[in-house]
Nucleic acid binder design. Sequence first.
DNA 1: CTCAATTAGAAAATCGATTTTTATAGGCCG
DNA 2: CGGCCTATAAAAATCGATTTTCTAATTGAG
Lengths: 223, 223
Amino acid sequence: MESHRSLTSLAHARIRDMVLSGELLPGSRIHIDALRKRLEIGASPVREALSILSSEQLVVRNEQRGFWAPNISAEDFGILLDTRCRVEALAFGDAIRQGGPEWEEQIVLLRYRLNALNRTEKAAAWEAAHCDFHRALISACPSTYLLNFCAQLYDLAVRYRNVASLAAYPERQVEDEHSQIAEAALARDAGRAEHLLVDHYRKTGEFLYQQLAEREDTALKAG
Amino acid sequence: MESHRSLTSLAHARIRDMVLSGELLPGSRIHIDALRKRLEIGASPVREALSILSSEQLVVRNEQRGFWAPNISAEDFGILLDTRCRVEALAFGDAIRQGGPEWEEQIVLLRYRLNALNRTEKAAAWEAAHCDFHRALISACPSTYLLNFCAQLYDLAVRYRNVASLAAYPERQVEDEHSQIAEAALARDAGRAEHLLVDHYRKTGEFLYQQLAEREDTALKAG
DNA sequence: CTCAATTAGAAAATCGATTTTTATAGGCCG
DNA sequence: CGGCCTATAAAAATCGATTTTCTAATTGAG
């Protein structure tokens, strides 16, 4: 069991998980009372958590009417992906130019841990290691503003990956891509590293984008 | 009097103003009970507002210990300024490439309104018009993620301007700069427009940075 | 038969009181 | 005399109940 300093932070973590995992389906209503009962806490910490999540764009607030899980669309995902590529490239460039030995060592370590895990067998652990690796790449960027924003965009992207629940995700050699990114970063080749990172995101995103577009297409014909 | 859909949004607006205006001094504690009494509302909406503000980086949360107005420093301001220049350049470029006639017209209109106001005589109105103008410049950027982030960084920058309360702000020809930025945007010259915008920010920020650095210097010698 | 007004039910929003945690000041022991 | 423990006060965090607002179904008029 995770121990949290406050019920608000516990609620935040739990509800965030529900949104990111896709358990709370896009467009579905989030009932405060249901969460209250499920988490066995009062309304205040639930509402505080939802307030925070809504300013993190992970839930949508509709004043006096309640909270919803955000809708998804191919268009929105495309914009998110593009935003992420450009913003993270900025942070990555900073990190490569300013990172010290600890930054380098973290990349080496976390790349090793990531590649040591099997994505399908240890899905949750891989997910966490993947997040850590990507965060480590940009961690030496001095702008906490940029880093926070990158983390937020990361969450939104993870959600898209999960809600689309692509069991038949095309198995590219994602380990190689991660390694190449890490190598370029450690070689302090900002241009190449940024390019590889953006390319990695776009390749990963392309398939998901197609899936979402197809889904909208069939939904349109059906409805 | 402003009418708000909920007491939470009212509290958010009010406390945000207190932080941005510098009324709540950097590093000072924010007492929930004091706000509760002052705004004549309960603890819940105050806490919700503070939760939102803390994820907007306008207040600092310290679990189980309370909320504080964020500290300021020359270093932090420099990073903020730099982040803002680079991120807003991205959004501005998008807007210039994708903006339609309504975007153009808004810029023309809001530039006119801004230049019609006297910065020292109608400070509050100028402030609002300035915000509107800058928002209009980037409004055609399709990424709401980027736009939200820009708005957040704008707020943080405004706060620095206010808390430093530079009565003796050097009077540059800021109207000309705004006009030039608007002209370049309307001419769809993304490169020039971005450059002018960044330059505008850096020039404005430079003096403030010096002030903050000096202040820290004297504080260091005194304390 | 359609549309507007009414009303019962559901849910969010808010409040005031209670509980829990932290900060502080005073006293005690080494 | 200094550091540590204890008691008290202050403040945040949380709860459960109440109030307000929205939603949807029903009814009646045109």
